[in-house]
Design a protein around this nucleic acid. Structure first.
Length: 452
RNA sequence: GGCGAUGUGGCCAAGAGGUUAAGGCGGGGGUCUGCAAAACCCCUAUUCGGCGGUUCGAAUCCGCCCGUCGCCUCCA
């Protein structure tokens, strides 16, 4: 099994260091609703985890919440509520969105504000080793003390301008590990006075605490490569003296909205909850995994509609019952399963894995027409879809208050049909269609569904 | 400006030296139906941004050009 490693820029054979595959994925800063970009990232790492488990790896999956930072503080102050209350609110919403998307929960979700002692320990350790220094009430990481700095983002430190806003620093490249407390901000006591953690240090502290000095896979969005992950590597490796901090760095591409990246700073965000009002979770997932995780994903309504339609085919193939088989020839499930595995083993080739699902669906449909026994093939289709986090569950039609009246009209119309009063029967059907109720006649009777 | 991606049919999207260029949507044809709808089946790129080069052979490798995007500041 091969995985592309951002650190080396190549696909590498995946071999976890121990019995359990240790995965750390950067989580969110909870100050606003989660959007499609988050959905993409976490769906992808959910698939990574599910697939590894399918391949009989044991997985420990940790994801953090950066629940204290400038954006949270500013937003909370504007709303006149404590930072913790704001973070709690959006963490709760985050879980609701992710659960809706059928994303399995991580084994643990450490929060920065609950890991302060661990963070202080790491910062102190970095000072002791000469990799960090105190200035004012803050502590900064000394970038020039790390000869490896830049290895993940493939940059030369000389080519990085750095942030010159904080004037106590030895160098513009240095970044805060601990920030001195300011008026109106939550703070914690530390050997350097009251303050709060800098942005990158929490991931180092949490990864070390929950997973140990070497993790197998570290994931996140491509936009985190620099500076976040670069700084994380520097801190972690300088602190433990052990390399690599993470064996494989996986980064997913960005969601594009039209021609630009969707991001909070550009304000062009589509919240997951809005999307879930229109599309099924399965369709959103299919839309995401239908292209490769490292490529940018362009959001489009058409794309989601297409995913919804395609998904319906898979559902039909997997769920639709068949008459008793009279034809003994079976579908060769092994071939499809093998294709699926081959695709996924090559850096999580979900587009090809999905293509395999569609091919299997066609084979099932053909088999059904030929009265072959398709039950095993259907089971396989569902099983493989599940690995991608697709449930293929039947859509539940919402119960409408008009329900009994629709049933009444259908009965009436069927009486008219029996009497071959086609014109009147069709009028009922077309009138209902205009109201968003679609009738479908079949040998088993008439069914209806709302258009939505 | 520096670093890095990427350009494949109407749209989305795989493939990365060699039999017929995956798959989805759309479109066309058909089965079923009183007619529809739904569902299913079949068909739908001699060609891979442009121009050169390497090779017996290139969408796949090399060079140049054109276009698009990301990162270099907070971001999944």
């Amino acid at each position: 099994m091969k995985i592309y490693n951002s650190l080396s820029g190549q696909k590498e054979e995946f071999k976890p260091a121990g019995e359990v595959v240790k995965i750390y994925v950067c989580g969110i800063t909870p100050y606003d609703d989660s959007h499609i970009g988050h959905a993409m990232s976490y769906v992808i790492f959910d698939v990574v985890r599910r697939y590894l488990e399918y391949r009989n790896f044991k997985v420990k999956y940790i994801q953090n919440f950066t629940d204290i930072d400038d954006k949270i503080i500013n937003r909370a102050n504007r709303l006149g509520i404590p930072a913790k209350e704001l973070a709690d609110r959006f963490i709760e919403r985050y879980f609701r969105d992710m659960d809706s998307l059928n994303i399995r929960r991580a084994d643990s979700y450490p929060r920065v504000t609950e890991e302060i002692p661990e963070i202080i320990k790491v910062v102190q350790g970095l000072i002791d080793r000469g990799h960090a220094y105190q200035a004012g009430g803050s502590v900064y990481f000394r970038v020039k003390s790390d000869p490896d700095y830049g290895k993940l983002s493939h940059r030369n430190p000389e080519g990085i301008s750095g942030d010159t806003a904080e004037e106590n620093k030895e160098s513009a490249l240095d970044f805060a590990l601990w920030k001195a407390s300011q008026e109106g901000e939550p703070s914690w006591e530390s050997p350097w006075g009251a303050g709060r953690p800098g942005w990158h240090i929490e991931c180092t502290a949490m990864a070390l605490k929950y997973l140990g000095t070497t993790i197998d896979i570290h994931g996140g969005g491509e936009d985190l490569v620099f500076p976040h992950h670069e700084n994380e590597i520097a801190q972690s490796e300088c602190y433990t003296g052990k390399k690599p901090f993470a064996s494989i760095w996986m980064h997913n591409g960005m969601v594009q909205l039209g021609k630009e990246k969707m991001s909070k700073s550009l304000g062009n965000i589509i919240p997951i909850k809005d999307l879930l009002n229109i599309h099924s979770a399965d369709a959103i997932r299919l839309f995401i995994i239908n292209s490769h995780y490292r490529s940018p994903l362009t959001y489009s309504e058409e794309g989601l509609d297409a995913a919804e339609k395609g998904l319906e085919r898979l559902r039909q193939a997997a769920l639709k019952n068949t008459d008793s088989a009279t034809n003994q020839s079976e579908i060769n499930i092994t071939d499809y399963r093998q294709r699926f595995i081959t695709a996924m083993d090559d850096d999580f080739g979900t587009p090809q894995a999905v293509a395999t699902l569609f091919d299997l669906a066609r084979e099932i449909n053909k088999g059904r027409e030929e009265h072959r026994d398709i039950s095993q093939a259907q089971q396989t289709l569902t099983e493989l879809a599940n690995i991608l986090g697709l449930t293929l569950a039947k859509k539940e039609d919402a119960l409408l208050e008009a329900n009994p009246f629709i049933e009444l009209l259908i009965t009436l119309r069927n009486d008219l049909r029996a009497a071959k009063q086609w014109q009147l029967a069709d009028k009922i059907r077309s009138s209902l269609t205009e109201l968003g109720i679609i009738l479908e006649d079949s040998p088993q009777g008439t069914t209806w569904k709302s258009k939505k």
